[in-house]
Each structure stands twice: as C-alpha cells, then as structure tokens.
Amino acid sequence: MTTRSAAALASGTANTVKLFVAALAFTSAYVGLSAYHNANSATEPVTTITLSARETPISAPIGQTAPAARAGEVTISGVPDGGAGCAGSYVARSVVVNPDPDQAVSYGWRLTRWSPASRTWRTYLVDHDGFAAAESTVEWRPHVSGNTGWYRVELAVEGVKTVRSERFQVSC
C-alpha cells in the first residue's frame, strides 16, 4: 500500500508542478505583452501653441446710443455684447405707419451684405413680424459673427416702399 500512496503522491506533485509552470508561463506572457503595449503607447511630446488676437473697431462707427426712430428711416446702433473677435450685435429701429389701420400689417427685416464679386447686395439674415395698430416703433437685433464686410438693413412693409439704412462696415 505504501507504493501506491507514494505513486499517487508523486503523480499529484507532478501535476501540481505542471500547473504551476503553466500558470507561471501564462503570467510571464501577460506581463511581457503588457510591457510591450505600454512601451508602444508612449505619449508624444507636448507642443505649446500661443494664439493671439486683436480687436479692431468698426471702421465706420455706429452710434452706441439708440437714435430716435422715425417713419421712413432705418437707424442702426451697435450693442456692446462683450464678444471677442468679429462678433457684433446691432439694433435696427424704425416707425412703421400702417397704410390700413383697420387691418394688421406685416413687415420684414433683411440684413444684406455687399458682395464685391457680384457687385450686389446679398441677403445675409431675414426676420418677419407684424402688428395691428395705426403705427408702431419696430426693432430688430441682428447678430454678425466672424464675417467682415459692408452691411445694411432693409425694412419692407406690406403695401409700402422698402426702406434701407445707411451702410456700415464690420471689421476685425
């Protein structure tokens, strides 16, 4: 019986040693693969870029105070919005007299930009509104962002001639 016990003990020890060697080989392969992966994924050196910007005022100054609105005129004033670069907000105002006070009147705003290529005014932004009264002071707040050039605002009232503002320049 002693021989059988010794044989079983030796066989069990051999199996244990085989399992230990296999586990050690697997662990070594895993650690080696992890080290290889980490060596290949080293970060590249950081490059520092310094950006600078300068703000240039509008070359044709627009009044900061709101001018009085009058019928037949579109007045423009700039609104300081605290934005950097070419961002600018404007207020366009006018008085619209309803040609038929018994009916509602529709009107539309249009911000146009001068195209040097085609030598025409091209639509940049539009807005529509209306009211039901004899007359009303109307206001529109277009925003120009990052697009330098010459602009003007047009107000088209249903049944009345279109009124245009003076042109103004947005520059950076």
Rank of each mutant, 00 (worst) to 15 (best):
A71C: 11
T162S: 06
A39I: 04
E55L: 11
T162H: 04
G78R: 07
A69S: 09
W121F: 06
A25S: 13
A68Q: 11
E166H: 07
S52G: 11
I58M: 12
L24P: 04
T48D: 09
E135T: 14
P116M: 05
R141I: 05
R4H: 15
L111W: 01
L9V: 13
D127N: 14
L111F: 03
A22P: 10
Y90S: 00
T3W: 10
Y36D: 06
V91C: 05
T47R: 06
V17K: 11
G85A: 03
E73M: 11
G149W: 01
L155Q: 01
N147Y: 15
G159V: 03
L33A: 15
R70T: 13
V163W: 01
N40A: 10
T2H: 11
T148E: 12
A134Y: 08
V138C: 05
A132L: 15
L19I: 13
R110P: 02
A87H: 03
D102T: 09
T120W: 09
Y107A: 00
V97L: 05
L51R: 10
S89V: 05
L51P: 03
V74A: 05
Y36G: 05
T162P: 05
A29D: 08
V153M: 02
A84K: 09
A23K: 13
V95I: 07
V144M: 03
S52Q: 10
G83W: 14
V157K: 01
S136D: 12
Q169Y: 06
V91P: 00
G149P: 02
V160C: 05
A87K: 02
T123K: 07
I76R: 00
S106K: 08
Y151I: 02
E158A: 06
P99M: 03
G88I: 01
G63E: 11
V96H: 01
L155W: 01
Y90H: 01
R164W: 08
S165R: 00
P61K: 07
P61Y: 08
G32E: 03
D100F: 09
A133K: 08
P80V: 04
D81R: 06
S77W: 01
H37V: 15
D102M: 04
I76T: 02
A8G: 11
S59I: 12
I49E: 07
A156D: 04
T13S: 12
W140L: 02
L33H: 13
